[in-house]
Simulated scan of single mutants.
Amino acid sequence: MYDFALNPDLPAEERYRELTQMALALTEGEEDPIANMANVAALISECVPKLNWAGFYRATNGKSGPELVLGPFIGRPACIRIEWGAGVCGTAAASGATQRVEDVHAFPGHIACDAASRSELVVPIFKDGAVIGVLDLDSPEPGRFAPQDAAGFEALVDAISDRIAG
């Protein structure tokens, strides 16, 4: 049994360093990327406050070009396929840049899977220079994600990208 907890009083940089170490410990020795994504989504959901959705979308080639396909997540049912460049997740995948959105209702083309979501952080995941997916985090609080959150989750996905690549 795994029992992880983060001290909320730690500075953000230390909290994310610990979260990354937990994710590495949780995925160590496991070769199945779906199992690793599932455990990391659960870990994030358990350790990071004020989230209503945490999970992964995997990059694939769809009928009309590159798209993201729903992977393991914690939260309400979600959109299964997102076109490259569509919504916050598709924008992160197409641009290769983290998207930190303070108010999803103000984001052009936002795809609302959960009406309770107000802010979103989407971090592209790279392997060998190519986007292989995104980590998607939603919050019911506007402005929930700070630059430190973006940096912390970028470091986390960078550390585990080999373990979640299919």
Rank of each mutant, 00 (worst) to 15 (best):
A97Y: 06
F73Y: 14
A38F: 08
K63W: 12
L68G: 15
K63A: 15
L10Q: 05
G90Q: 02
A23Q: 03
P66L: 13
G90H: 02
G55C: 08
T91Q: 11
A12D: 15
G62K: 07
A54R: 02
R76K: 14
A94T: 00
I44M: 05
S64E: 14
Q21C: 07
A42D: 01
Q21E: 14
S64F: 11
R15M: 11
G71Q: 05
T27L: 08
G55D: 09
I34R: 10
E14R: 08
E83K: 06
R58E: 09
G71K: 04
K63T: 15
A92N: 01
L51Q: 08
L51K: 06
I82A: 07
L19Y: 00
G85L: 09
L51I: 09
E46T: 01
A54N: 07
R58W: 02
F56I: 00
E14G: 03
A78Y: 06
A97F: 10
W53Y: 08
G29E: 06
N36A: 12
K50Q: 14
K63R: 14
I44F: 03
A93F: 06
T91G: 05
I82K: 04
G62R: 06
G55A: 11
A59Y: 02
R15I: 09
R81L: 15
S45F: 13
A93D: 02
A35G: 12
E14K: 07
T60L: 12
E13M: 09
I44G: 03
P11M: 07
A59R: 10
A42F: 02
K63D: 15
R58L: 14
R58F: 06
G55F: 06
V48Q: 02
I44A: 05
A41D: 04
A12C: 07
C79Y: 05
V40F: 03
Y16R: 05
I34P: 00
S64Y: 10
P77A: 13
E46M: 04
W53M: 10
P49F: 06
A42P: 00
P11C: 11
L26Q: 08
L19S: 01
A97P: 00
E28S: 14
M22W: 00
G87M: 08
A54S: 15
I80D: 13
R81I: 15
G71E: 03
F73D: 03
V40L: 07
L43Q: 00
E28Y: 09
G29W: 08
G71F: 04
G29N: 11
A12N: 07
V48M: 05
A38H: 06
Y57I: 10
N61S: 14
C47I: 00
M22R: 01
E46I: 00
A38D: 12
D32E: 12
V88K: 01
S95W: 05
M37V: 02
G71N: 04
E83H: 08
A78Q: 12
E67G: 09
G87A: 09
V40D: 05
A25P: 01
G29H: 06
A12L: 08
E46N: 04
V40S: 04
D32Q: 09
V48T: 03
